[in-house]
């Protein structure tokens, strides 16, 4: 059972503050969504957690061991990272792209186990018909799913997803997030999702973090999220409804 602790993390891009004293914990089996306006620091936070950026202050602990002490390959087996944007000049097939997720485990040649895992992930995400298509011939949504699939093939303990549902239609949004949720519970993963889709985040997460100007303005159970917090963060009037499970639904008020 893996635990993730983010302790007082701050980060600057030169003189611009991106994160300020961010602290929170993630337990195994938990899905946490980070929401907040553009430029709030969501992506920066995920990159710090993936050790792609080094925090200016503070530490990130995996199982109470500092991120700095992990080797790249060690981390690659622990953390699956889906970046906001991925593109390639020289395309591989979908199967090979997902096989990249097995990179930390394999030498030069993928083993039978690697191939079996990739096949499994493809079937779980219902992408079998795409498996041998070149990745540059995919639609935006199919491409996004391929990248998520690669992170799953990595068999990580921690999943960091930056806008995983970008470009996905309603059906596939639900499909991907449902699968991620199930996996989180079944395989005891820590899942951290950065997203712009507030309602999807509210629907599929255990905890919500609202970031604004690099600071956490809310962190807690979905049901405790107050309208005022979101209004202030997004700087827009909001109407908050509730579905039958008392899960909030957020709609921006548009003044005529």
């Amino acid at each position: 059972m893996v635990t993730l602790k983010i302790l007082g993390v701050s980060f600057n891009y030169n003189s611009i503050k991106a994160l300020e004293n961010v602290t929170f914990n993630v337990k195994a089996g938990e899905v946490i969504s980070i929401i907040g306006p553009n430029g709030a620091g969501k992506t920066t936070l995920l990159k710090c957690m993936a050790k792609l950026l080094k925090p200016k202050h503070g530490t990130i602990l995996i199982d109470n061991r500092s991120l700095d002490l992990f080797k790249r390959v060690e981390l690659a087996k622990l953390i699956g990272y889906v970046p906001q944007l991925e593109e390639t000049r020289f395309p591989l097939t979908v199967f090979e792209w997902i096989l990249l997720g097995r990179k930390p485990y394999m030498g030069m040649k993928p083993s039978k186990k690697d191939l079996a895992i990739v096949e499994n992930v493809i079937e779980e995400l219902k992408m079998k018909h795409l498996a041998f298509r070149k990745v540059n011939e995919l639609s935006g949504g199919e491409w996004r799913k391929t990248i998520v699939a690669r992170a799953l093939a990595q068999e990580p303990k921690i999943l960091l997803l930056d806008e995983p549902t970008n470009h996905l239609d309603l059906k596939h949004q639900v499909e991907v997030l449902k699968l991620i949720r199930e996996l989180a519970i079944k395989k005891k993963l820590c899942v951290i999702i950065a997203t712009h889709d507030v309602n999807l985040a509210l629907r599929f997460s255990d905890k919500i973090i609202v970031l604004n100007e690099g600071k956490i303005v809310f962190c807690g159970n979905v049901k405790l999220l107050k309208r005022e917090v979101l209004e202030k963060a997004y700087d827009v009037k909001i109407e908050m409804l509730h579905d039958t499970n008392r899960c909030p639904i957020v709609v921006p008020k548009i003044e005529a």
């Binding site: 991925e86 020289f90 990179k103 690669r150």
Partner: peptide
Amino acid sequence: VFIFSSDYNAVLAGDETAASLGVN
């Protein structure tokens, strides 16, 4: 160079993804 062929494959996905897959 050939020994690194799977590293080159990972670099196809960009620097950040390659790094997250354990490639220096």
